[in-house]
Design a binder for these strands. Structure first.
Lengths: 127, 127
DNA sequence: TATATTATTATAGAATAACTATAACATATG
DNA sequence: CATATGTTATAGTTATTCTATAATAATATA
């Protein structure tokens, strides 16, 4: 099923457009607005809706694909993968490390960090 | 006391130089190689050691300062702050959210994420 | 006091990354 | 066949990052 994605582009954000798309699609998956097997709009279609170039959408899709979050179906459409891929990537660990270091340097304790992550997870779950 | 910072610059990294410096200084703090009150080398000195421009070091220092991780002493030298600042920032939370969403979309469970973060913290602690 | 060291600000330019604009091609769908 | 898709290619623009110099004010030191 093709879902109406809830993606909002902020051209004043310091985050690149393709990362905004990437992050919001992962958010849609985390909050079950997108589920295993759901089909993403074509890069051209989404680009038109968001009023940006299709190459920018493509960049987001490629990153999702690289991380095993979506797969290309034989009908040439991108589909949300099941979570049982083995792509649980080293880059994510690197991001976690940087995040944890920053938090520790800011004075968060171990408990602060764990609690913060738990709070974030449950707030995502309740969306 | 001025510490010999252990910072390695990778010019082939996809991460900007100033973020590499920022992240490695937070790492030095997290691993207690830098402690409250320690003085950072001047931006010119560190730039010379790393063989980069001092503005690039400055950019890292400014970000550390913005996040309350270092403060400018009255002797015009940057000093590691005590962790009791109230800068525990919203941007960090945003980064955590993106990280958690990405992890969930990759198929990590809540427990996976918590355990991963815990593992990372203790591995940092043992450095 | 004089000199050196520091952060800060300013300006300019180069190199890289991000974004846009078109076009073309192969493949799958209807 | 006609349409829609992902992919690749090329080119150009804009934004970010990094470099290069220079100047100023405040602090430390000799």
């Amino acid at each position: 099923m093709v879902k109406a994605l809830e993606i909002v582009i902020d051209r004043n954000s310091e985050q690149p457009l393709y990362l905004q798309i990437y992050n919001q699609i992962t958010y849609n998956i985390s909050t079950k607005k997108l589920n295993k097997g759901d089909i993403l709009p074509s890069s051209r279609t989404l680009a038109e809706v968001l009023n940006i170039n299709f190459h920018t959408v493509n960049q987001a899709y490629q990153k999702l694909r690289t991380n095993g979050i979506i797969v290309l179906g034989k009908s040439k459409k991108y589909v949300i993968a099941d979570g049982n891929n083995s792509e649980k990537g080293t880059k994510l660990i690197e991001k976690e490390k940087d995040m944890v270091n920053e938090a520790l340097a800011m004075g968060y304790t171990e408990n602060d960090i764990i609690e913060s992550v738990k709070r974030i997870i449950s707030s995502i779950r309740s969306d």
